Simulated scan of single mutants.
Amino acid sequence: MAPDYKHVRVRDYLRGLVAHELVVGDTIPSERELCERFAVSRMTVRQAIDALVNEGLLHREQGRGTFVAPPRTDMELRLVGFGDDMRRRGMSPHTELLDAETVEAPWDVAEALELEPGAAVHHVQRLGWADGRPMALEEAWVPATIFPHLLDGAPDAFPESLYATFRDHGHDPNWGEDTVSASDASAHEAELLRLGRGARTVLRIARRTFADQVACAFSRSCYRADRYTLWVPLTAPNPVVTPRTQGAATSTVDASPTGAARTIQEVRR
Rank of each mutant, 00 (worst) to 15 (best):
D254C: 11
R42N: 04
A215Q: 02
M86R: 08
D26K: 04
F67G: 04
W231F: 01
T242P: 05
R133C: 07
T165A: 13
A206L: 05
A136G: 04
Y163G: 08
L151H: 06
P71D: 05
R224S: 07
S181Y: 00
M135N: 08
R224H: 05
R60M: 01
R46Q: 11
V142Y: 03
D99C: 09
D99T: 01
H169T: 13
R197M: 14
P148Q: 05
I28G: 01
Q246T: 11
T95N: 12
V10N: 03
R126M: 15
V40A: 03
F218M: 01
L34Y: 14
E31T: 13
V40C: 13
Y228P: 00
L98T: 09
L97P: 10
E33I: 09
G81I: 12
D50H: 06
R126C: 09
V103I: 12
G132I: 05
H20F: 05
R207N: 09
A157N: 10
E189P: 03
Y223T: 00
L58I: 00
T179G: 07
G196K: 08
I146N: 08
G153A: 15
G16D: 07
G56S: 04
L195W: 04
V124R: 08
A199Q: 13
T258P: 02
P134E: 12
D178M: 14
E189W: 02
E61Q: 11
D50T: 10
V202W: 06
D84K: 14
A215Y: 02
A120D: 15
G259R: 10
L234C: 14
F147P: 05
E21A: 02
L203S: 00
A39T: 01
P243D: 07
A157T: 09
A248N: 06
S41W: 01
A130C: 11
V202H: 10
G65M: 06
A164M: 04
A190N: 07
F210I: 07
A119H: 00
E101F: 00
Q62T: 09
L98N: 02
